[in-house]
């Protein structure tokens, strides 16, 4: 991954820039301690970057190049390949989240201690539902189309609830964003890390997205073009 410059850009640099920019800027009004609202959103953004955009693009190109077919015939097999991808995503995501959290603390972030466990649950559910969405996008389209769609959706998700609370969006937009995995994950992270609450509603939405997109992905996924 580190060899792929643009993936580092999407998964670490852009979230870090968003964190610094939103912390230093004066708008929009986010209440007393801006940084405490901004960092959870940035962590949610990093989850979407790694679990959705990076995975969708990598899987689509592996599919087009026949890598999935070839590895499926080695002793590794399809199950091993899936297991490996899960472990790899988890490892890469952990590194990203640690780097961004350290940066946040350096900028003055003080998360709610009792919110760490619900935040980890949110990250896990968010990562699962975004990986399922990634497989849905990557499973059928051409690799170049996946590249475009995955990056476009990253921007859409960023705007619809990942980075900023859905309550700061216009009423209609906010209502839609709350039902999307982006709004659900963003709000879940903020609820946990600002107030230390257990956001059951947002988790349910993430779980629903994971189940629906997961089932659809297994139906339509093609192992080769």
């Amino acid at each position: 991954m580190l060899r792929n410059g643009e993936q580092v850009l999407v998964a670490v640099i852009l979230p870090a820039m968003a964190m610094i920019g939103l912390t230093l800027a004066g708008v929009p009004d986010l209440g007393a301690r801006r940084i405490d609202v901004v960092v959870p959103g940035v962590l949610a953004l990093a989850v979407a970057s790694t679990a959705f955009t990076s995975q969708a693009i990598a899987t689509a190109f592996d599919r087009r190049n026949g890598v999935l077919r070839l590895l499926g015939t080695t002793p590794l097999g399809r199950d091993g390949l899936l297991g490996g991808k899960i472990i790899a995503t988890a490892a890469v995501l952990t590194v990203h989240l640690v780097v961004l959290s350290v940066l946040g603390v350096a900028l003055g972030w003080r998360p709610e201690a009792s919110g760490v466990i619900p935040a980890l649950i949110g990250i896990l559910l968010g990562a699962i539902s975004f990986v399922c969405l990634a497989m849905l996008v990557a499973g059928r389209l051409r690799a170049e189309a996946v590249l475009a769609v995955a990056n476009l959706l990253w921007v859409v998700f960023l705007g619809l609830g990942l980075l900023l609370p859905t309550s700061t969006a216009p009423a209609g937009v906010g209502a839609v964003a709350r039902l999307l995995p982006s709004g659900a994950l963003g709000d879940a992270m903020r609820a946990a890390l600002i107030h230390g609450t257990w956001p059951i509603r947002e988790w349910s939405i993430l779980l629903a997205w994971a189940v629906v997109s997961g089932v659809l992905a297994t139906r339509i996924f093609r192992w080769s073009d």
Partner: peptide, 20 residues
């Protein structure tokens, strides 16, 4: 199973190699 796949080698027409 994996044991069977280990006994069979394959060279695909389009290579099937990761690109990076």
């Amino acid at each position: 199973d994996a044991e069977h796949r280990a006994r069979v080698g394959l060279m695909l027409q389009d290579g099937g190699l990761p690109s990076m």
